[in-house]
């Protein structure tokens, strides 16, 4: 299998526009051969709608705020596209990380290295 034609949705759940982390991750995923659809700061229902219309194989959420906002977005995506895996990055304090992992979501906090994130995307989309 390869990454050819695999599509990843990248969204920010908060209204915080820091782009340093997400942009580097998006470029690394593109360089690994993924088609990365970026939607910027999106409400949970916008994340859900884009995950449907764009027929993505993986949803990546950058969270910069409270974990409950991300949990709501995850719930909405799961409801409409239960088969699509989700991973999360950003400022995720340990208690939030535990909560997300409890939902079956992989979490990549600050300091995560790009090769690990790319490897996760390949594994989650079945490209590796």
């Amino acid at each position: 299998m390869s990454t050819a034609g695999k599509r990843i949705l990248m969204a920010k759940t908060g209204l915080d526009g820091h782009w340093r982390g997400p942009t580097v991750v998006a470029k690394a995923l593109r360089d690994a051969g993924f088609e990365v659809i970026m939607i910027g700061m999106a409400r949970p229902e916008e994340v859900m709608q884009a995950s449907i219309d764009e027929d993505v194989d993986l949803v990546g959420l950058n969270i910069g705020g409270h974990v409950d906002v991300a949990v709501r977005a995850i719930g909405m995506v799961r409801e409409s596209r239960p088969e699509v895996p989700i991973f999360v990055g950003g400022v995720v304090p340990p208690h939030a990380k535990r909560k997300l992992e409890g939902l079956g979501v992989e979490v990549y906090p600050p300091g995560s290295q790009l090769p690990d994130i790319v490897a996760a995307a390949m594994r989650l989309t079945g490209a590796a």
């Binding site: 990454t3 050819a4 998006a26 470029k27 995923l29 593109r30 360089d31 690994a32 051969g33 993924f34 088609e35 990365v36 659809i37 970026m38 939607i39 910027g40 700061m41 999106a42 409400r43 229902e45 916008e46 859900m48 709608q49 884009a50 219309d53 764009e54």
Partner: peptide, 28 residues
């Protein structure tokens, strides 16, 4: 990208006003 065959598709970032509308279908 001709090298990696990957792509960054960012047009939706500019289209928030219609991002969750049932009357608009956007595909990158």
């Amino acid at each position: 990208s001709p090298l990696s065959r990957g792509a960054l598709l960012g047009d939706r970032v500019r289209m928030h006003s219609h991002a969750a509308s049932s009357q608009v279908f956007i595909r990158s």
